[in-house]
Design a protein around this nucleic acid. Structure first.
Lengths: 337, 337
DNA sequence: GCAAGAAATTCAAACGTTTGTATTTTTGCA
DNA sequence: TGCAAAAATACAAACGTTTGAATTTCTTGC
């Protein structure tokens, strides 16, 4: 027994398919009586709308695509989780693609999503992608709603959702300053990304506001892995650095490990604050102070923004900022907190 | 300018749409010459096949759905990552749904996927789901390929892919025995799940094989969280237990923390091995021995099995077993290793 | 040069739904 | 009772593709 169609229902009730369609859609052009009949029959026959046919006819799908560098990164999987939890109840399906941090994969992913007529694309760019040129024309011709998150570029998409990376770094750095650390340095990532540009700026702002000078000897970019953190921690310590704000937790972990190796006491002799609040932060010893990015909330915000745009709700901004929250743990608890 | 269709291409070349369709499909029924012409024209006009129309006509989609309890769990996000990496290049899209560990959400997710005519469903059941009854008839009527992974039930689906949970627990327990620990206990999870049933059996087997007796005082089920681990570690120690094989890393973490609190030395006075090789295991102090589940590999295996089934390749089994690998770290290194 | 067969192409219907327009039925009112 | 307006339904085309069958065009051998 093949799946019943509206035509089957129509035949069974001796009416026409269009009436069935309208009845199921709840159109006011169909009488209460027949609507009831149709609904009952549909249920009885186990009817399920053929989404393909419907989408083809209507010209829109209830599918949205998400492109992330890697799904198995805590930050991104939280975003996916949050977005899915909002989109699914709203009747949307979420298609996932990974760019594996490659521009070419990213382009291909977008291509595939467009071919699948997604009604929206939610994207966080790969690290390899340095600007939005390649996507501009690709996306321009179509009517899909595009929302960028976390790693975003100007001149593309309807909206972007990002963390308050500036404030995130500023508050963490300020916390180190207030905790009495001196000669505070910065470990960041690739500065072609808005994320690290903003964090660096936040660090610098906190320093400037406290009347402290920024010393290039204590500044490390392209340093977000555990290994790099370990490696550069050595340099930093050697040069007299007293504390580090790290724009990534893995680098901060490297710093802690270096300190442990060298017998440098954290937080007494050296302070560290990381970023992302990875799930190892309260497990490492000493536990790592970090900035929570509220990634799940970012996911729901992205999804909600998408739904708002779809429902024609005018957005009063083109940038949604998700607040971050400093979590103080042992690695920076020099003074009583 | 709306998207060009095969009809547009046909008109431009003064041929018919069916020829264009066949040309693009690489059918042998069309001449080399026109195939070239069509391909050139298609590229020139920026043609992209309308997947919806194609799927509607063919009666199949190139979409597969995956249902997991939560996407933001390392284990599952690795599986998603692995599966996506195989399916995407093969021309399939992956739709993600979360059951949030609820049977009802799970049922709804499957329903939605079926309505979207996915050509396959890859599913790991929610903890709340105790058997496959609710899905049997739902899935039976359709022709979708169903593959269960990790948490699987009998009598449903075409295939299942699981870890070697028995061997996983056996090797870990044997390792504890060989390291000279005595009175070794077990911390497991809910035994309505095949996963924990098998792990418990593996633990028991290792004990039996070593001629050791299993003491119920050292057995804890429904104990996979950090809190429960901490709580039950107290009981275990009090009762004279000397080491624990934990079927989950979080419980093992709780055990380590209890020991640290009480000044019990790990690995000297107490041994712990966890399961899953969560990314905090080599960060916690002392580092936690654990069993790697090769989750990414499980994802690729699931996806490959799906592709095999689709391509009509006969499978010589209905159960694929992904091997695990014991990683010995400090928490169980009593003897020189 | 022509018939027979192969090769290439066209025709037409189908997938299941939606929707503008036309038609029928019902309703309300004089 | 009759008639216009409103309500309900039916008709038909369309979305873009695929595919079996019919038709045309090209080969090939005699």
């Amino acid at each position: 027994m093949p799946k019943p169609t509206i035509t089957d229902i129509a035949k069974a009730l001796d009416i026409t398919a269009s009436t069935v369609s309208r009845a199921l859609a709840g159109s006011p052009k169909v009488s209460q009586a027949t609507r009831m009949l149709v609904e009952r029959k549909a249920a009885e026959m186990g009817y399920e709308r053929n989404v393909l046919a419907s989408s083809l006819r209507r010209g829109v799908t209830d599918t949205v695509g998400m492109v992330v560098p890697r799904v198995n990164r805590q930050f991104f999987s939280n975003i996916i989780s949050g977005a899915e939890a909002v989109l699914n109840p709203a009747g949307y399906n979420l298609i996932i693609s990974q760019s594996h941090e490659h521009s070419e994969d990213e382009r291909r992913a977008i291509q595939t999503l467009l071919r699948n007529q997604v009604s929206g694309i939610l994207i966080s760019h790969s690290i390899e992608t340095k600007d939005a040129e390649a996507f501009k024309d690709m996306l321009a011709s179509t009517g899909v709603t595009v929302i960028q998150f976390d790693r975003a570029f100007e001149g593309i998409g309807d909206l972007c959702v990002v963390n308050d990376n500036f404030e995130c770094a500023r508050s963490a750095t300020r916390h180190l300053i207030e905790s009495g650390y001196e000669r505070i340095g910065y470990m960041g990532g690739d500065e072609s990304s808005n994320v690290y540009v903003d964090r660096k700026a936040g660090y610098m702002a906190a320093m400037r506001e406290a009347g402290l000078e920024v010393n290039d000897d204590y500044m490390f970019s392209n340093c977000i892995t555990r290994d790099k953190g370990f490696y550069n921690a050595a340099k930093a310590v050697e040069r007299g650095c007293g504390a580090l704000y790290c724009a990534g937790d893995y680098a901060a972990l490297g710093v802690i490990e270096y300190a442990r190796d060298k017998g440098i006491k954290i937080p007494e002799d050296f302070g560290v604050v990381g970023t992302a609040n990875e799930n190892f932060t309260d497990v490492v010893y000493p536990s790592l102070s970090s900035v929570e990015q509220n990634s799940t909330e970012m996911g729901t915000a992205v999804a909600k923004a998408f739904l708002d745009i779809k429902s024609g709700k005018a957005l009063n901004t083109d940038k949604i900022i998700i607040p971050t929250r400093l979590i103080v743990r042992d690695s920076s608890k020099r003074r009583k907190y």
